[in-house]
Nucleic acid binder design. Structure first.
Lengths: 111, 111
DNA sequence: TCGATTTTTCAATAACTATTGAAACAATGG
DNA sequence: CCATTGTTTCAATAGTTATTGAAAAATCGA
């Protein structure tokens, strides 16, 4: 993962509302959630949620698809896992340069 | 890790300069780096670097210690690994609720 | 088609962030 | 004690971000 991609994703995750959206959508899996239900569940104004969903979409963390007059959003778990791998690789003190060796960094947190 | 802690860390990592600082300090390990050397290595004005180091310190990602008239900074790799564990736990679609099962999320990126 | 529903866009505002150069502060060495 | 070195603070500026309510756009059901 490139540095600018990483910073864009981190910026997208730097808001409580957006973090809530992401983790809620992750838990919903392939089913995802419709914008209105997300707004209700998170107690956020629809216009404000739309603002945050746009940011998350531009970062690639969620995708939206139209269903009639509803807009369904789903988490991009593949990108999220890419981020985990990137972070693990960079945080591993004896960094190998890419994300091939993520195990050691994880092992230290859950031996 | 609590949500507000996570958002604070993500915000700290949402700048290219701060990301560079973090990964450079991680690679330096316990030796760390002096502020001036960091500024030179990253080609950033000292006053600007100080601004970013302050942000990273407040987020807990780096620590500073005085050495004579130098200020040495080191990465807080423990917190970084906590973040990896948090992310992995939240991104794992069948989220167990905490960071105990990070392996499955990793395995998908490097089978 | 008409009215209702869902979502996005827009405008206005307030607050925050990054950058720069100058000044201030702190510590050292002569 | 003074000049120098390293770092931080400050002020000014420009750009960005979050929030709200109103309006607009899109879709559906009757």
């Amino acid at each position: 993962m490139e540095r600018d991609t990483a910073t864009a994703i981190f910026e997208a995750l730097s808001s409580g509302v957006r973090l809530d959206v992401c983790w809620l959508l992750v838990r919903k899996g392939a089913e995802g959630m419709v914008a209105g239900d997300l707004a209700t569940a998170l107690n956020v104004l629809p216009s404000n949620l739309s603002f945050h969903l746009k940011a998350l979409t531009q970062a690639g963390l969620v995708t939206g698809s139209q269903e009639g007059r509803f807009q369904r959003y789903r988490a991009n778990t593949a990108l999220m896992m890419d981020l985990v791998a990137y972070l693990a690789a960079e945080c591993c003190p004896d960094n190998p340069g890419d994300a091939d060796r993520v195990q050691p960094a994880i092992a230290l947190t859950s031996p």
